[in-house]
Simulated assay, not measured.
Amino acid sequence: MNHKKRIGKLMLAGLAASLTLSITQVQGSTLDTLTQEEKQTEAQIASVEVTIGETLASINLKQMGIDDLKAQITAAEESQIETRAAIEAQKEVIASRKEQLKTRLVALQTSDATTNQILMLLDSENFADFISRAYVVGQLQAADNEQIETAISEEEKLTALEEQLAEEIQTVKAAESRLKSESTALAAELTSLKGILSDNQTVLSQVKTEYADEAARLAAEEAQAKADAAAAAAKAAEEQQIAESSSAVAESASSTASASVQESAVASSATAPVSQITDSSVASVETAPAVTITTPAVTETPAAQGKTLVVSATAYSRHEAGLSNFTATGIDLSVNPMVIAVDPSVIPLGSLVSVPGYGIAIAGDTGGAIVGNKIDLHMEDLNAALSFGRQTLTITILQ
């Protein structure tokens, strides 16, 4: 009889243990999968944020190159204007000298000056005097010719300089166009990266929600399974008690030799209290508390408005005492320092904003004092941030 009771208790303990083990294995496998997926998504988000920082740095570097080329074009065009004015002035000098020479030649042909020059030569005292006077006349004529030749040479030099300036302007403009194309391509890539980042953040939020739901569901299933196991154990104990009672009655009927003794035994057996099953493996099963996981909300990034805005700008640095490397939206400033703090009701978080003298940055932080048309520029250089002061700027919220 005792042997059968022990077997029944072992069967009940085995049933409860198998149910608990099965639930624990399913729960651990499912939650481990969701945890792994969450870690992978967070790693992808970190990688995309690094790429966004590098892309922003490239865009700002190319913008600096474009600004430098624009300055070169402006200087070359101003030089070209000055050269053209000099060419026009030189042309006037040449025309004036040609007109003077023409007037002089006509006067020589229509007056007695030529005869006078010949008489001056004929009146020479000797041949040496003749040569000297002829040399003087030749020098006067050569001086006129030299002046005209010099003026023409200067004009040719200025013309060549103008052509050179025109070529330089074309070269610089071509370089500017190339940089603009590269900058546009990088801006498109940046927009794509922002989309990927937003998608990853959405996936992360969904994974965390699924984790919370799955944990709650598994906890409920585990509680229900334990309740079912307890009910099954109670039912098995009841059936075992009935079987034991039936066995006792059969043994009493088969013992005709000692009827009185058997009747007493049957009565004793009938009035004896039913044995309670106290299997430690069943009694130790407790209902696990439901797991509650708080899922952070994901901020949807509105589309950029593509408009200009006059703002009051200040600056800060992550190196200031008491400040963290991470912004209100989770951006790591040590990885991507090009971030500005904004009022989200004025400039949507996640927007790309072009700030004069600073570059293109992400609206990725907030602040208690940043209300309305105010922004706070993050600077890696603490001294630069402290010396920035407060400035009024016209910024552009990019498309």
Rank of each mutant, 00 (worst) to 15 (best):
S181I: 10
P289W: 01
V137H: 05
N145P: 06
I347Y: 00
L323P: 00
A46N: 04
Q72E: 12
A341D: 07
T35C: 01
S153C: 08
A341F: 05
G372K: 06
A89F: 06
S275L: 04
A361F: 08
L10G: 03
G138V: 05
I23E: 12
S22W: 07
S198H: 07
A267I: 15
Q276T: 15
S275M: 07
L69G: 05
E210N: 14
T396C: 03
L218G: 03
T35H: 11
N200E: 15
K39M: 08
A257M: 08
S280T: 07
S245W: 01
A219S: 15
E244S: 13
L158I: 07
R133G: 07
F326K: 06
D228T: 11
V48H: 01
V342N: 00
G322R: 02
L204Q: 03
A142D: 10
A46I: 05
F127H: 06
I148W: 04
H378N: 13
E214K: 12
V207L: 14
K194E: 06
A341W: 07
V353D: 04
E168R: 07
A313Y: 04
Y211K: 08
K374D: 02
T292S: 08
L352I: 11
S252L: 08
E38Q: 14
L186Y: 09
E163L: 13
L56Q: 09
P302C: 06
Q224G: 04
E38T: 12
L333R: 02
A270F: 10
K5Q: 06
A297H: 02
T327W: 00
A304W: 02
I277G: 11
M120Y: 13
G364M: 09
V50E: 12
A297W: 02
S252R: 06
T366I: 14
A385N: 05
S252T: 14
I362S: 03
H319F: 11
I196D: 11
T271H: 09
I7G: 02
D365W: 12
D228P: 02
E189W: 01
Q72V: 13
V261P: 03
A297L: 04
T41I: 12
T114Y: 15
L377F: 04
G359Q: 05
G195W: 00
S387H: 08
D332C: 08
E210C: 03
H319V: 09
K194G: 11
Q117A: 12
V261G: 14
E244T: 15
H3A: 15
S96N: 15
N325A: 11
N383D: 13
V203F: 02
E222R: 09
L121K: 04
R133D: 09
E42T: 12
A219W: 00
T103W: 14
S280L: 05
S29A: 08
A313Q: 01
K5H: 03
K180F: 13
V137I: 14
I94M: 09
A341K: 06
V26G: 03
D68G: 09
I52E: 01
A253Y: 14
T55D: 09
Q44H: 05
I148V: 14
L377W: 01
I59W: 02
A237V: 15
S183C: 14
